[in-house]
Design a protein around this nucleic acid. Sequence first.
DNA 1: TATTGACAGTTAGAACTCGAACGGTTAGAG
DNA 2: CTCTAACCGTTCGAGTTCTAACTGTCAATA
Lengths: 149, 149
Amino acid sequence: MNADTPPLTTSLDLLRWIGWAQREAGMDWIRERELTHEQSFALGFLVQNPGSIQRDIAAITRTSAASVSSLLQGLERRGLIERRTSGGDSRSKRVFATPAGVELIDGFDVAMRDAEESILAPLDEAERVTLHDLLAKITSVLPQPTRPE
Amino acid sequence: MNADTPPLTTSLDLLRWIGWAQREAGMDWIRERELTHEQSFALGFLVQNPGSIQRDIAAITRTSAASVSSLLQGLERRGLIERRTSGGDSRSKRVFATPAGVELIDGFDVAMRDAEESILAPLDEAERVTLHDLLAKITSVLPQPTRPE
DNA sequence: TATTGACAGTTAGAACTCGAACGGTTAGAG
DNA sequence: CTCTAACCGTTCGAGTTCTAACTGTCAATA
């Protein structure tokens, strides 16, 4: 492995691999609750951002409006969320997690944080900062999928 | 943004974002050929590794044997690949890209390399090496999905 | 030889993703 | 005030993913 040939495993390969590992890490927690990864992510987001409209959910999950529509259908069928057309604009629907939804997803953020911790375990604090800075540098010029905040 | 509170956007968030961007970057090229991201990846792999058995494909794409089965069905229906049970073991099927498949996917690796290049553009050479080292350090202790060389 | 267990791949069923087309709603232009 | 364009969400159809159950094949052992 010399310097002027690209590494056998590119950075982006590694990156996808880590993303996959992250999914796997949270999988046990999620499957205990009979959720899919996407459902848990959406539900977790709704607890933190009650009353979001579907369009925003599509943006932060980087999927389409159509996907959100079907995704929420699954959650609504189980009584984990509610869609209300409150507000002046009756086009948009504000989505809320029900108490059952809140309870089911309770601890999700902690579980995700633990997963992150276990994945980043090989790195010391300085290295984590370096990694974060490098990643932030990359994303700073990426097409923004309309992130909230 | 001070040092002892976790960043608003965690490294793993950024990482998923970049993964998403990579998908998007190659999307035009892929959709011109009426392939999905997964199909193109599998087909590209088969051109580079003719005669792989499905089990290996599942390993490197980090999916299940069942997913590979359906994925290849789609490619086979279009005549882009062939499955042959050559060899001593009649359980396993060696998969080959047909000439049509080879032609369709021609340039895929270059397109992916361009996508990678455009994503890593904000980093200079030293930073890229640092990033790659950090990622490699993380993946070195990850559960290995049986990667080939 | 017969049995048992591991392995390769397939199928069935439910869920998600996407693009495209469609119905309501809102706002802005004339 | 009407008409048009933009916007939010849904539905449809095809494709993929997953898990679980199943067929078929090989290999080791008794």
